[in-house]
Amino acid sequence: MKKRGPLFLLFISVVLLLSGCSSNLLVLDPKGPVARTQSNTIIFSMIVMAVILLVVYILYVFVLTKYRATKANEGYEPPHEEGNKWLELTWTLIPVIIVIVLSVVTVRTTNAVEKVPAGYDNEKPLVIYAASSNWKWHFSYPEEGIETVNYVNIPTHRPVEFRLYAYGPIASFWVPQLGGQKYAMSDMVNTLNLVAESPGSFMGKNSNFSGKGFAHMEFEVLGMSPTDYTKWVDDVKKTAPKLTETEFDKLLNTELVGRKSYSSTHLSFRPAPEGENAGHHHGKANSTDNMDNMNMDDMDMSNMDHSQHE
């Protein structure tokens, strides 16, 4: 009996892969430097993996076609083979080399995407607090003194520093075309640096399951030219109502709301969990002091408390 399943599979995967790449898969259609780094990393790893798959598949098909039991080889007694030191060393060392290469790529790109993207590091970033609550997103612009719900407008070609935290369950802030996600949690603030390099509307969402309304936690990120952006900010300041504490509490307790705009932020009366009483300060690139948060010993997380002394 011939086994065509895997061949067929390989064929399908190649076809789907090609068609997939040509259409616009969001992750592979980046609109900013962070997402571009990630998209390149993904495509690079896909190519490496395709080569590995190909080697395995060729060997596999060869072995299966050549050594299957047939009438012709009846009576053939397969030899006893203990193994071969050199062959086994080969298929240990080549993967080791591949893993080293991938490790270098990973460490470099991970560092790159945690930082303000190269080329933008001299600019003062626009700080936006993004807080999740069941089940919506609140965006506060402390410098501009405005706040929006379920949509966020950003100027293009300017680094944006999203500071993420949550009212309630863990959420994950994700705008696939601008960059990968990061968690928003209740007892600390995470930082995510993004830049949009072309104007347009980008889909953003919570990607971490947070209960019943989770599927509806989408928001729009609108990249605008700097002039349009300033105009929009002025507009909001002029026309939108102030965000009072009661209004904010009402917002928190409403499960699903549409878009909202306010001409003040909730940060004054409900500050983000940072500063003295906050938990960790994560997400800063190269923060070596965080290394001991994750002790290598599986049973020992004894050092987790160190950053509390900050």
Binding site: S103, T106, V107, T110, S172, H282, A285, N286, N290, M294
Partner: peptide
């Protein structure tokens, strides 16, 4: 994505 920085993530990668 919990935000423990590039070093920790690099190690676990």
């Amino acid at each position: 994505t919990m935000g423990h920085g590039a070093m920790v993530n690099g190690f676990f990668s």
